[in-house]
């Protein structure tokens, strides 16, 4: 293990290490902790300039209540859910198939197709912006959640295919060979042999894509406008315009907007990290 385990160090070093970690953590998360404190302060604290002292009253319930019951926030959250969940399902479904095709079959152009997906995944969004916006307008899907979902599915298929294909490559190929010898149809091999083995990959990809799409801002601004279709990342800016200088409400709103992926991360931590670090170890 590197660095040398702290247990082998002197007692003093151990104690200072143990006390250093929480201090480092508080410094690391300081900007966030500040926002969390803001979000439970009453507005009088801001008008009297009492920014950094202890909250004069605990107003968390009232602040968050306002966010949930007196603003468009619930609608934006709902939009985010309606955009994110179909995208996750669509992108994972498509990439299970493409990953299977590229991982299992040997045919001319296999590697080229694979590299097309990989390269597309690295492309800067801006080169797609004008044509995709135009295409969405032509399809009559501008300013709809469907328009956003379709694009997200297509774009995420690149990353998901890379992920799935490499995962399938690592599966024992003898299983597929055995099934073929038995005369099992190809789609049945996919459905009954390979898909059950891909459950960990599907779980990892689902949490990752959920986070990516929930946090998307660029495409939300390019393809939608207004509370009826915008997700929460874009909605938070209109929310802030509405409550300009009401820092307690803006803080509470930001925390609400950030929370779902955070919750997802803490619930599915193992899958999330397995997905992110795929390929970090040979």
């Amino acid at each position: 293990m590197f660095p040398r385990p702290i247990q082998q160090a002197s007692r003093g070093a151990q104690i200072s290490y143990q006390s250093l970690i929480p201090v480092a953590l508080i410094l690391w998360l300081a900007p966030l902790i500040a926002v969390a404190i803001f979000s439970i302060k009453p507005d009088t604290d801001f008008t009297t300039g009492n920014y950094w002292s202890w909250p004069s009253r605990f107003e968390g319930a009232a602040n968050y209540g306002k966010v949930f019951f007196e603003s468009d926030m619930p609608r934006y959250l709902m939009n985010s859910v309606l955009i994110t969940v179909p995208t996750v399902i669509g992108a994972v479904a498509l990439s299970c198939m493409t990953g299977f095709a590229l991982g299992v079959y040997k045919f001319r152009g296999n590697l080229w197709l694979f590299f097309m997906f990989v390269a597309g995944n690295f492309v800067p969004f801006q080169i797609l912006m004008v044509p995709v916006r135009d295409l969405t307008l032509d399809l009559g899907l501008y300013n709809t959640k469907t328009g956003l979902v379709l694009f997200h599915i297509a774009f995420q298929t690149g990353f998901c295919t890379l992920f799935m294909r490499n995962f399938i490559r690592a599966l024992p190929f003898e299983l597929i060979e055995a099934a073929r010898v038995e005369g099992v149809a190809e789609w049945r091999i996919f459905w009954f042999v390979v898909l059950p083995l891909m459950k960990p990959a599907i779980a990892a990809l689902s949490v990752l894509i959920f986070t990516f799409i929930w946090n998307d801002y660029f495409w939300a601004v390019v393809l939608t406008q207004g509370a009826e279709s915008q997700p929460v990342t874009a909605g938070i800016t209109s929310f802030n315009a509405q409550y300009r200088a009401a820092y307690h409400l803006m803080s509470a709103g930001s925390i609400v907007a950030a929370l779902p992926p955070v919750a997802m991360f803490f619930m599915m931590q193992r899958h999330f990290i397995a997905g992110l670090t795929l390929g970090a170890v040979k």
Partner: peptide, 14 residues
């Protein structure tokens, strides 16, 4: 895990 939008807001206030 936090969206860049929120990171931006948090640092603007920071």
């Amino acid at each position: 895990v936090i969206s860049q939008v929120v990171v931006g807001l948090v640092f603007t206030w920071f």
